[in-house]
Design a protein around this nucleic acid. Structure first.
Lengths: 236, 236, 236, 236
DNA sequence: TATGAATGAGGCTTCATTCAT
DNA sequence: AATGAATGAAGCCTCATTCAT
């Protein structure tokens, strides 16, 4: 029996070390991707940085792309967790809580957020990792469900404007996305002295945009001419 | 004299055809880039699609990267033109005109806008095309100057909130940027039935956000807790 | 008749201009080859330098290689002319005249001489210009005949050592060849202050080497151990 | 402990095989370069000939050019070793030993010597390998120092003519260089039946040229007219 | 006749992935 | 189990040559 316990312990410890190493690989990959840009990072570099052989990396991940997907998924899970807490708070009576949690989560580490944005746009459409990307979409879908139900209630309460619910969360997503880009944009970056101030400003917009009474009351009506009047859907 | 005229004509026609071909290469490159993704497009493919030899492509562009920069610059110039017109209208008394023009320009062809976003983030930091990217930054800087002067006036008039002027145009930039991403995001795209409706909604937010009286008056104060409280600047 | 004369004149003039242009192409090619190195010179560059179109170059020369062969042949002919005059003088009683003429011809424009050396070693074995290279060899063969007959006489007179006659002219060729290389060698070039002095020194060696009484009388015999004792012919 | 020994052994053996492979690549590259000419040899061909993949070649050498430089450097080192031994013997009282060693080294494998000549002239001025070429020049400089000191002594002893010391070693270098060229020259090669005899003849000239009493005493004075009278330095 | 835009074969190099040790 | 040397597909780019105008 002690023998069994022993070997069980050993196996357990082994697994632990295995997972720790996996974490280390991800972590170092992240570091390199942010530092050098996606195009410049090779599997060799990741392995070296993580202090393991290239072969070992392939024991943990079937392909290089899987490392990237994993980063995207890990990040999305973390965002999701934060969002869920926010949604709960909103449901509990604090209407701005969800947006606040969400923006906070996304703007806390803009470099990482931006990296994940870029990774997602590269991975989308890669047949090789369609399954994992489907997991990402699954996460999003469940968020969407929660958000929709939350938003419908807020609309009913008259807090939010009565537009299709997805308009609300997509605007938030879009603003967060863009703010991160702006944060790093070379053209603009230089002249924003107080970057945190800017993110705070954006977050506040995000939290309030779509709130009832915002759009239509305080501005000259001619501003609301349909800006996408001649909008063409560019099909590909 | 007729001889001179003749040869002049011929030269002119040649140049015209040359430029037409260049346009064709760009156009086909654009098509492929949007259709297949930046990583998948090779110079060979562009050449084949444009119906020319690989060598011909290199007669028009020094490197593959130059094709990409060219696309970015062309697009930025077009955006700039639209923005300028909008700024003039704003100066002439229509406060929302600039934002409206800007959003209209950026959301008219979202696929192209998104491609250019992705291109810019890849080209940034490429020594090889530093000069042309500098041109991009130059364009942006001159826009920024015009915007700043416009925004300062609007702040003085009490139309816009009194925050650093760059907050205003960066928010617009960010929202446009993000809206385009949202437009194509696989997770979300599916459930936006009325995509144009969404873009219109976003544009209207963009046009009004930062308007005085929007942020602070109509919402419960607890919403304005600093969302970036623990924001860390992620150094790269 | 005047008509005929006219057209004859025109044709003649045309030919003259054609030949003048050919000369110009060669001349500019030479310039570029010496200035930039053989690898760096393109047909385009030659055409531009000569002020004609690429197509025109191909009216004069079937291939790029033919330009190179032509340069080699032109040079060899010039060397041959000088050598012939020298040989005649030697036959007329001045034993060193041939060597003197030869060295003078080859060391007058070392840069050109070196270029031609390099060209020859690249063209040798190129099937495409086998014919023209054969012309080069023909020139050389006729020189060799003249030299052999001259050298045999000098050996008979006791002026030159009695070794196979080719040893004598090949030594001269080799020394000239190597002196030119030395002239341009980066490692050595720096420390030869008086480059002309060096060429003069070499030329004088060339003129006297192989002269009877030079080799065996004045040096300790142990110096003459066969240096190529273990010489292996490296066949390819 | 045995474990440590084991892994040490394995690592050592691995390194040995790695170096052996590198040697193989060089060797096969050499073979191809000599057989087909520098222009015709591709990295692919080298890899195939060496029985390895193209990628493997790039594990050993950063670029194709580095292979070439390596060949040049290896050869120069071997020549230097031989020369050093010769210089020591000369210092020990055998005046011709240095020249003998040198000629022997250079004429032992003329095909290789010629290849290296050609490689050097192509590599010179290639920024990419400036460092390694500097190593070549360093080797040469140290040889030059040793030679100069040796030659000065021989001049003082009255063995060599009193001209700038570099004239002596440069003449040797030049003669060796040229002899190798002559050896392979298609025009001349054919009619030298006893190629080794020729190299021996040249070597003997090399060993004695510049010896005092050689140049001026035994030849009619009119031979010594300045052969480079009208010599122009051709600037590049 | 002169031109130079167009062509595409072919070279160099990178790097994800495999597999023998 | 971990390693990293080996692999080769695939991409970018050059330039000699052609040919329509």
């Amino acid at each position: 029996m002690s023998k069994n316990d022993d070997s069980m312990d050993k196996i357990r410890e082994k697994k632990k070390r295995f997972l720790a190493r996996e974490e280390r690989i991800i972590e170092k990959a992240l570091q390199l991707l942010i530092r050098d840009g996606i195009d410049k990072v090779t599997v060799s570099a990741i392995a070296k940085e993580a202090g393991v052989g290239k072969g070992t990396v392939y024991k943990h991940f079937l392909t290089k792309t899987e490392i990237l997907v994993r980063i995207v998924l890990d990040y999305e899970r973390s965002i999701t967790n934060n969002l869920r807490i926010g949604i709960e708070k909103t449901e509990a009576g604090d209407p701005g809580a969800a947006a606040r949690s969400y923006f906070h989560a996304r703007l806390t580490n803009p470099a990482l957020d931006r990296l994940v944005q870029q990774l997602e746009s590269r991975l989308e459409g890669d047949r090789e990792v369609a399954d994992q990307m489907e997991e990402l979409h699954g996460l999003r879908r469940s968020n969407i469900d929660a958000l929709n139900s939350m938003i419908v209630k807020l609309i009913d309460k008259g807090v939010l404007e009565d537009v299709p619910p997805e308009y609300h969360y997509l605007s938030c997503w879009a603003l967060a996305q863009g703010a991160v880009e702006a944060y790093f944009n070379v053209s603009y970056g230089a002249d924003v002295e107080d970057k945190e101030g800017f993110l705070r400003f954006v977050a506040n917009i995000g939290i309030t945009m779509g709130n009832k009474g915002q759009l239509l009351d305080n501005i000259p009506s001619q501003c609301l001419i349909n800006v996408t009047e001649s909008l063409e859907t560019s099909e590909s």
